[in-house]
Design a protein around this nucleic acid. Structure first.
Lengths: 198, 198
DNA sequence: CATGAAAGTGAACACGTGTACACTTTAGAG
DNA sequence: CTCTAAAGTGTACACGTGTTCACTTTCATG
């Protein structure tokens, strides 16, 4: 698995590297691969599963919903960015395969992200500031937040590890999230369907 | 080029298909490929270039900045969604290669998106509603908007063409964009650095 | 109608690929 | 110490790959 991650990080993507190269990188003969996985696909799916199992762990450990809303944005962004940096190869793999992987892999990633989005919606629902928001709108908002965070991690992974440019990226994401939450204050979940601003 | 697009749409991604397969799909012998492109890379870059040339055309033709801000969101979303559907294969290619392509391809796509973001920032600057926003913040906002629209197109491409599920996707993106613009109303570009909402 | 460039052809090359099979080594539990 | 399952090995096969080269066909232009 480590060998696969290293190769994917140094090449275009997963489908561009072969079973034989992975085996070579792992210091093992090609046929030994089959002792561990049925398929390259199976390897990929395992990597995805591992990534998100670990991410879910982090997110539930942080128990964001127990914190005060004030300052939550900055804290969350930092937590997440830190975690992405610490698991660079794993996330790089997921980002690359999200749209270019096998159907099975794409679906797995998609479903995992959906889970995170739903969890966020449930967390947000606990705050008074969101009490006027319908369940449906909560998920729409969570979706926007999650997408913004995903974009942040894609960018962190794009700059090289010791560039220190990350701070600018985090600041931007933070601003964007704050902007979103500002909108929430004016949002009405069952408004007359007329535009309020645009 | 058409052959390559068709294959990429039916397979995982560009690096997973070979010169020989593209030639076969085009009804031509492998060596004939070299009469048109030096490289597979060159083909990919050309496809990207074409996609964005055409997209820029559409966006400038629409001259969004000449329209009233009210209703702009819905109109833009519809325009864009329509265009994505009409150029399904092309966009599918770009979405897949955005993170999993060659360095050259990834950079090309990244730069093109940056151009669109900057153009949007310039357009927004013309509206009175954004007069209190600093240039820097305008780009941050445009970035968020562009990312939201990109996410919309990724989703449109993920459901099959005649599913009619698109309306729900567009509605969600529309809501998210309106939420963002609501936030803009309360945004202060040089505030005391204290959080206003979170 | 001639001509020259653009497009397409077919054979050949050296090499990388996934997987099958029978075999050997490793290492931990009884 | 023994034995068994897991991990690793080496050989072999049929096939797909990018690229080369000299050759033929197509076809618009003068």
């Amino acid at each position: 698995m480590q060998a696969a991650l290293e190769l994917v990080a140094s090449e275009a993507n997963f489908s561009a590297i072969s079973l034989r190269r992975i085996a070579r990188q792992a210091g093992v003969v090609p046929t030994a691969f089959y002792r561990h996985f049925e398929d390259l696909d199976a390897l990929g799916l395992t990597l995805i599963e591992d990534t998100f199992r670990s991410l879910r762990q982090i997110l539930s450990d942080a128990s964001l919903s127990a914190l005060p809303l004030k300052g939550l944005v900055r804290y969350s962004v930092e937590l997440f960015a830190h975690y992405v940096r610490d698991n660079r190869l794993l996330f790089q793999f997921v980002v690359k395969e999200r749209f270019s992987g096998t159907v099975a892999m794409r679906e797995a990633i998609h479903n995992e992200i959906l889970l995170v989005t739903n969890a966020l919606a449930a967390d947000l629902a606990r705050f008074d500031e969101f009490s006027h928001i319908s369940q449906d709108d909560l998920r729409t908002i969570s979706d926007l937040v999650v997408n913004t965070v995903i974009t942040l991690s894609e960018r962190i992974l794009d700059v090289d590890p010791d560039n220190a440019e990350d701070d600018a990226l985090m600041l931007r994401a933070e601003k964007q999230l704050r902007l979103i939450f500002m909108g929430v204050g004016r949002w009405e979940s069952r408004p007359a369907d007329t535009d309020t601003t645009a």
